[in-house]
Design a protein around this nucleic acid. Structure first.
Length: 397
DNA sequence: AGGTATTCACATGAAACTATTCTCTGAGTTAGG
DNA sequence: TAACTCAGAGAATAGTTTCATGTGAATACCTGT
């Protein structure tokens, strides 16, 4: 066993390295320049500039789809701003509301904020308004401008309502020395329209839109990162173009593009090949898809997994099945595994949910006297499907 | 033939119920003064 | 005595069920040629 492992390690060391700095292809990496976002950077800079003189910058609302550089740009501008502020105190705080257990409730958000400010609060037990008091007090301790970047702000509001935002936006009237500016980030374009008008007007004093990257822009980004990440010359011609093209189809998602390139590199490295080829990019696309699907499936509730298992069993050898058949199969599975079967109504919702995750495809059709159904089909590559089957089988032994 | 009504097999909505998780209070405990 | 801990009440939430209503087109059934 150990011998085998040692062999793997020596083998690894013998291979020509592919990565010079793999981290350059991850989301947490902050490059020195951000291509094709010059306008947004300048705009945000102008909006936040008053902070340099200790004034309160306008609240900003940033939207754009995933992987369009919203978080990156806001963090970048804020850190530059901090550098530029010599005498004045500027304190950027970044909070991501999508992260479970970090900031997905009002209490946790506030607790997280206080922690950033160096004030430890028990993770449960205190009344929320007391937290607000502590927060305001802490912020107001000295003359400073706090820039609160709330990422995925729509997730927060969806879970906890918009009261938090209201409380935070009116914080400034309670602060004497310090100033608090909010930077809300979301990829839900309709989000702001659904907000309470009072909050809407104060939160979006300024708005910034981040358009998706096109394939050419993605290529630029990839080239910049690839030159840092890879050993020169390991990328075959066309690899970057291919990765950019694939990501451009996914509404210009730069994160996706970087992932593709990174995974392609990893696959080449693991296969001990000297060059990263287009083949690897294709394989990477498949693998990312696979990982995503498996990740989602594993995190689903048992009932939802049972429904998916039923769908897969029912589709076996067919293009598509009707929801009625799936429900039958689901009931059998429940009996076989001692699960309490849910009602058809609920199963219908679970199916719709799986559709939303992109694991299955559904289409409501009417068959005249044959009634109305959902036609359900899986749209996964055969490799992914096999893996998925194995995963589900493990769950339902 | 052309038009209307019926019917099927679920989809989709709303309300009600339930179990779990959060929030908050107050009593008990601890540690420092 | 202030600060902390913890149990339990009550509120909020998420997950489901129950009941009700909606849907689109194949088919059955008319109706007048």
């Amino acid at each position: 066993m150990t011998q085998k492992l040692q062999e793997i390690f020596t083998q690894f060391l013998e291979n020509k390295p592919i990565f010079a700095q793999r981290a350059a292809l991850t989301i947490s990496f902050t490059p020195e320049t951000i291509p094709h976002r010059e306008k947004q950077i300048a705009d945000l800079g102008r909006i936040l500039a008053p902070a340099l003189r200790g004034g309160k910058p306008s609240n900003v609302f940033i939207y754009g789809r995933t992987g369009t550089g919203k978080s990156l740009v806001s963090l970048f501008v804020c850190s530059e701003l901090k550098k530029a502020a010599k005498g004045n105190d500027i304190k950027p705080i970044y909070i991501n509301c999508k992260m479970k257990k970090v900031a997905d409730t009002e209490y946790r958000l506030l607790a997280g904020l206080l922690k950033e400010l160096g004030e430890d609060v028990p993770f449960t037990g205190l009344p929320t308004d007391q937290l607000y008091q502590t927060l305001f007090k802490k912020v107001d301790e000295k003359e400073q401008v706090v820039l609160l970047i709330i990422d995925e702000i729509d997730a927060l509001v969806a879970k906890t309502g918009d009261e938090i935002l209201y409380n935070l936006t009116r914080a400034n009237s309670e602060l004497k020395k310090a100033k608090l500016a909010l930077i809300g980030i979301t990829n839900d374009l309709g989000f702001i329209e659904r907000l309470d008008p009072r909050i809407k007007s104060s939160l979006s004093e300024e708005e910034l839109l981040f358009p998706p990257y096109n394939a050419v822009q993605l290529q630029d980004i990839l080239r910049q990162r690839a030159s840092l990440a890879f050993v020169p010359g390991v990328l075959e011609d066309g690899v970057i173009e291919k990765a950019a093209a694939l990501a451009a189809q996914e509404h210009g998602d730069a994160r996706r593009a970087l992932d593709l390139l990174r995974v392609a590199g990893e696959l080449a490295e693991r296969a001990a090949e000297a060059k990263v080829t287009i083949k690897h990019v294709d394989a990477a696309q498949d693998k990312i898809d696979q990982d995503r699907v498996l990740e989602i499936v594993k995190s689903q509730a048992r009932q939802s997994q049972a429904v998916l298992w039923a769908i897969i069993q029912a589709t076996e050898g067919k293009k598509a099945v009707e929801s009625g058949h799936v429900f039958d199969a689901y009931n059998k599975i429940c009996i076989a595994h001692g699960l309490k079967p849910l009602t058809q109504r609920r199963v219908s919702d679970l199916i719709a949910e799986l559709d939303l995750f992109g694991i299955i495809n559904t289409k409501v059709i009417s068959r005249g006297r044959g009634g109305r159904t959902r036609l359900i089909s899986t749209n996964l590559s055969s490799l992914t499907l096999t893996k998925l089957k194995n995963t589900l089988m493990e769950i339902f032994i």
